[in-house]
Design a protein around this nucleic acid. Structure first.
Lengths: 356, 356
DNA sequence: CCCCGAACTGTGCACGTTCACAGAGTCGTC
DNA sequence: GACGACTCTGTGAACGTGCACAGTTCGGGG
């Protein structure tokens, strides 16, 4: 006969215990059932908050759960339910930019908050190289996640096709033009850019230029389009400097180029706060005062905006809200609800500070 | 008799198919076995790269895997293996600081890189309130993760006791004093602070002050101790301003207090780059030139350091390396290897730029 | 020729859960 | 008093995998 373990009730099982196991085994639903004197099924109903359980059974089971310290085994549950209770968070961005871009942190936090409240876990996947793309694609098709949030996808991003093919519930943050009918959340870059440029005009600026960045991304192209919208017939292509990235150094360079071409500039719309910060440096070097000689506005309302001297007037980008909305969108699909086909656009209030 | 599906071979199973399932089911190890004409066991051996498989069987199975598009089911594997193949990444930091502190992003990235290379997934858990502490504690005890990385734990952090009680493989980034013998990775804050203060002295600064922050954390207290070490008998407590947080605004405030008390200061060690950036603003407002009138050094070598004017001389904190080392430490424990009992300290080179 | 070990393969069970179904009891209604 | 509706409970069958174990084949040595 098996000797009963000193610290653990075995119940109906017929384990032959030779030595006491080193690590105490976790209590299962079966242990709870034995402890409470009911069957597995009834325990399961209590755990999952289903009806058809007597008050008496419920109390007994709740006490038993407490006593044996039962926590449901996720692997078993996922196996039988055919789901993983996890959502992937894919960031397609080189490591360096991941650190530098304050929006990504906010998006991550917003998504994480919503997901964990719904008892989903968030698995972060960073794509830095082509090798990573394959790894992530394999991961997504491996059933490790029930859905996916994809941040900063590019034009022709392979992730788009992967997600389409797998028919995986997904939400993109931002919308590359070839997204077709996949759900996304974002902001109206074009409209926001138009509005802040208009306010710059309303403060009496006459010759307004723009430092346009990242024109290979929808955000970059849309911000330029909004700038053009605002100026209308007064638009002059000579007043636009084009730089590759949303960075401080590209901002400084763009500003220098613009000043060389158009010395009588009295207003600048920088495509992001980092770009604006770089522009401010170039202006300081050139001996121009801000906002005295020239007004500068940025975009994002990131931590850059308060680190510059003077503080930046800018468009507030709701990073946390974007992440939260993307998570809600995926959760909605998981619940089988219909999603708005055209994506969700969040509000972008304009923050007026000292730089213009 | 069941009608065979048009697109999927059923094999030896006796499924009664009434309608074609809406979502194509994933291929299982059984499907591969049937396709290759072998048993499940042999397929399992191939998948897990075990010996005792004939070359012929191996080729057939590999072809079959390719053909049916087999990907191992993680839930089933986890269930039978009694593990989750996931590691938790716990950040005990309010949301605001999570965004502001550039180190956390680097640590996250380093940990994520190492873990995903080892085919572990990383689950991020952010603790912002007491409610979150309970949620995370419950999560960790739920067997969702095989190990955990804990960032910025405080003195008497409840996570310490939770991890101890669960005997969960863990690595702390930074070491609260009551950590006892739990493994950690970190930097030698005290020594680094001493070294950079000494270099400030070597450049001829006579009256050197410090803006000390976050003295409730080991990092904050150690940086002050290192500063004291460097000055030795020349240490004057009046030259230390104490502020609560590693932030820009606290830095500005600390600098103003210091200037009011000691107008003839010619050197300042700020407890972090953000603090230094704030100090720079206060100095600009007071009309002091940096590094002309006064030398300023920071700590972290974060993105702040290159955003200030002039660029900051500072201590490089290897954030990515810390995350990577913490992940390696957890993976090592998972492999059953012994870990260094005293924790791991990473190098912190001093970066000399323009501010001192 | 027999035996033994090595190389290889197949099979049953266990992991812990949910779900469909069957069965038991209670109550009200025709 | 039979019957249906409703409430509650227990049971067996999956879910897809790894592992221990039991076979089978093959080759070499005594």
């Amino acid at each position: 006969m098996p000797v009963s373990s000193p610290f653990r009730k075995i119940g109906g099982y017929s384990y032959q215990m030779v030595t006491v196991p080193a690590r105490r085994k976790r209590a299962t639903i079966h242990d709870v059932a034995v402890e409470a004197g009911v069957s597995r099924g009834t325990v399961s109903r209590v755990v999952n908050d289903e009806p058809y359980v007597s008050a008496q059974a419920r109390t007994a089971i709740e006490a038993a759960i407490e006593k044996v310290g039962y926590v449901p085994n996720n692997a078993a549950r996922n196996l039988v339910m055919q789901r993983s209770q996890a959502v992937g968070f894919v960031v397609h961005e080189p490591h360096s930019l991941f650190l530098d871009d304050p929006n990504i942190g906010g998006i991550l936090l917003g998504a994480n908050t919503v997901l964990s409240r719904a008892d989903y876990q968030m698995v972060s996947l960073v794509i830095d190289s082509q090798r990573d793309t394959d790894r992530v694609a394999r991961y997504l098709s491996g059933g490790f996640v029930d859905g996916v949030i994809i941040v900063s996808a590019r034009h022709e991003d392979p992730m788009i096709r992967v997600v389409e093919k797998l028919a995986l519930p997904a939400a993109f943050v931002g919308h590359p033009p070839d997204l077709r009918r996949l759900p996304f959340v974002g902001i109206d870059n074009r409209r926001s850019a138009r509005l802040i440029t208009e306010r710059l005009m309303q403060t009496g600026r006459e010759r307004i230029g723009m430092i346009a960045a990242a024109l290979d991304r929808d955000s970059g192209a849309d911000r330029l389009a909004g700038f053009t919208d605002a100026l209308g017939s007064r638009f002059d292509p000579n007043l636009v400097a084009r730089v590759p990235l949303y960075t401080y150094s590209d901002g400084a360079e763009g500003m220098r180029a613009l000043l060389a071409r158009e010395p009588d500039l009295d207003g600048v719309f920088a495509a992001s706060d980092a770009v604006a910060a770089g522009a401010l440096e170039a202006l300081r070097d050139a001996g121009r005062s801000v906002p005295g000689d020239i007004g500068v506005v940025g975009f994002d309302d990131s931590s850059w905006a308060l680190r510059t001297q003077p503080h930046l007037s800018t468009v507030h980008q709701p990073a946390f809200g974007l992440g939260a909305a993307a998570a809600e969108c995926v959760l909605g699909q998981l619940r089988g609800e219909d999603q708005p086909a055209d994506g969700i656009l969040l509000e972008t209030p304009i923050v007026w500070r000292d730089s213009a």
